[in-house]
Design a protein around this nucleic acid. Structure first.
Lengths: 226, 226
DNA sequence: TCGCCTCCATACGGTGGCGTATTGACAGCG
DNA sequence: CGCTGTCAATACGCCACCGTATGGAGGCGA
């Protein structure tokens, strides 16, 4: 562990960014409590003397690390999805990929867990808001009204967040990654988080399929309520 | 704040349970970091001397508080729901009530945020697992196969968790409690988290409603895959 | 009333982290 | 070759919290 620095004692001096990256690493596997000057210094093989030359205090480091994180987060990761032309397939892919990966989310979870710190909360809010906004666009692109797109985006994002927590706190409740139940659940998600086709043009929707109460497609129903 | 003790300086001595309850209160509005001996003592108007008579150390207090929490959590709160005879209405009510309240969940969020502590993680896991189990029963009672009930329960619980996070970290994304959008979203949830009626008896489901690809009811579709 | 047991106060030492001050190593450059 | 600027080591004081030791205060039974 802690192979943050390339080889343990290379002669290269440290940059501020090196400290910021080390802080992010520490967040990933120890939470923000891991962002402590002296422990970080030990991990980097130096002492506080170095740190306080690059940063005025601990908070400055935290801020820099968070900025770094926000950049990485709003950068390329969704790049491949933007190229997906079919909006329906695009939504399916988001749902699938986000609920599969987990690697990227360690930091997010740690940050969210420390959201009592207003500085951290600000970053978490920005990143999450932007993500929901993206989802909203995706849902609109599939033919939903702005209102319905908002609701679906909110729902889908809460599933993402909740799934993260489940996988962390109750791994027994989460199917093993290569099991058949796993792929079945992902398929299940892809459908539960995608409005029915006929929801997009309520005019064509059959008034009822089978049962009486509470049938009808999801989005169509709530849409007619407004 | 901190009116934990009845009146600030009543002569009654403290019991261990009083400390445990104070710890829970502290968790609710400061996170587990709030469970610190000396601050708690100040808040209770006593000194450490009292604490270390009742408990051997901080961890003992934490454990006792968590046990208290687990009791309260697996106790009455769902009582009224068990009396609901109509299983479909019961599910609707769970969805509605849990996503509306928030009060009860402050402690849960704080605990989940501190799930790096194995002691805390154990309690969180137990409580959450039990809750999912309850949901599973509810979904089975509505006519779903065990497999599908598991999936729906997992989905619904992740929505609960994710919604909590959204309301805490991005309150702007959550509709104001008495707005019309709020009630519309809850209605939306009640439908999105409830399988379609015809999903329960796939034989009766019409082969297709309108569109071609990806139609059919959610549960019916995944059910036929197994 | 005396003594004991319960609950709490006071005082102390220890630990881990923050931030500062001072000094030192080393490189580039005039 | 010395100057200067960059990066780091050492040493210090401070604070918050944990846990211990010890000594009361006050009720309560004998």
């Amino acid at each position: 562990m802690s192979a943050t620095r390339d080889t343990i004692n290379d002669k290269t001096r440290l940059s501020a960014d090196a400290w910021a990256q080390a802080a992010l690493d520490a967040i990933a596997d120890q939470g923000i409590a891991g962002v402590a000057v002296e422990p970080l210094a030990r991990r980097l093989g130096v002492t506080k003397g170095s740190f306080y030359w690059h940063f005025s205090n601990r908070e400055a480091l935290l801020k820099r690390a968070l900025e770094r994180w926000e950049e990485q987060e709003t950068g390329v990761p969704f790049q491949s999805l933007e190229n997906e032309t079919d909006p329906r397939r695009r939504l399916q892919r988001v749902i699938r990929e986000v609920n599969t990966s987990l690697r990227t989310s360690r930091i997010y979870q740690a940050l969210s867990a420390a959201a009592d710190d207003p500085l951290i909360a600000a970053f978490v809010t920005r990143v999450s808001t932007r993500r929901i906004e993206t989802l909203r666009h995706y849902y609109e692109a599939v033919g939903l009204s702005p209102d319905n797109a908002s609701r679906w985006a909110r729902l889908t994002y809460s599933v993402f967040l909740g799934t993260l927590q489940i996988r962390r706190d109750m791994p027994a409740e989460w199917p093993h990654t290569d099991s058949t139940e796993f792929s079945q659940y992902i398929a299940f998600l892809e459908q539960a988080l995608l409005p029915d086709d006929d929801a997009m043009n309520p005019d064509l929707a059959a008034p009822a399929h089978t049962g009486a109460a509470l049938t009808g497609t999801l989005a169509a129903n709530t849409a007619t309520k407004s």
